[in-house]
Design a protein around this nucleic acid. Structure first.
Length: 219
DNA sequence: GGCCAGGACACCA
DNA sequence: TGGTGTCATGGC
């Protein structure tokens, strides 16, 4: 049986790989969800390995809370973030996010009441980073669409080649139960699949989805 | 030594 | 709106 629905693909990936346990945190930050917010910014176009080096720098310099980020000088923050690349823009974005969080009564208040629009207004936070924060830090059902998602669903013929971020997100959210834990696991599984199958070439023929999809010979 | 990684944005036509 | 350059480090 070929798999044509997002839910079918999710189930196939879950049975293949098992739960991925995202978001990976070391639980060094206060509160723990703040580490997710920081990681979401640092991982922009950057390998997670490099992000961990920067997170370690923050931890080892007691820069682990929203207040710490606000109180740390830009030059110092840039030095700590250096291993994750793009350290100038990321330090700026991180301070902007800390300022936004600080306008709420508490971090719990931020988690409950922050909106996608408010996050997207911050320079340096685009749709994927905003959705990562909403889903993985705030527990809200907001689907994270990344390059792997776009590539995989296009290969399966479920979205057009020209479909943009919001279109793919709308498609997935309207074809899946509105369930944060499902979105959480699905995105992590897609990243797992993408890393395994498609790193060498976007035209890679050894896509693991091939054995669960009726379509053969992916483009 | 080149390519790429869990993007975003400014600028241009 | 779509394409292109820029931001930057570290691993392979």
């Amino acid at each position: 049986m070929g798999i044509k629905s997002p839910l079918g693909i999710y189930e196939a990936l879950l049975s293949r790989y098992g739960p991925q346990g995202w978001w990976p945190i070391q639980n060094n930050f206060k509160p723990p969800e703040w580490e997710i917010c920081v990681g979401a910014i640092l991982t922009q176009n950057t390998s997670w390995n490099n992000v961990e080096k920067a997170l370690d720098n923050l931890k080892n310099n007691n820069c682990v809370s929203v207040r710490d980020i606000l109180d740390t000088r830009r030059s110092e923050l840039e030095r700590l973030l250096k291993p994750s690349g793009f350290f100038r823009q990321k330090s700026k974005t991180l301070k902007l996010l800390a300022k936004l969080v600080n306008t709420f009564n508490s971090f719990e208040d931020f988690k409950r009441n922050v909106t996608r629009g408010a996050l997207l207004k911050l320079n340096g936070i685009g749709p994927e980073t905003a959705d990562s924060i909403l889903l993985y830090a705030c527990g809200k059902p907001s689907f994270v669409v990344d390059a792997y998602t776009r590539r995989i669903f296009h290969r399966l013929g479920l979205v057009g080649h020209d479909a943009g971020y919001e279109k793919i997100r709308d498609y997935l959210e309207s074809n899946l139960p509105k369930d944060a834990s499902l979105y959480n696991e699905f995105h992590a599984l897609i990243v797992r699949l993408g890393k395994e199958a498609c790193r060498k070439s976007p035209l890679c023929m050894k896509c693991p989805l091939e054995d669960v999809c009726e379509k053969r010979g992916f483009p």
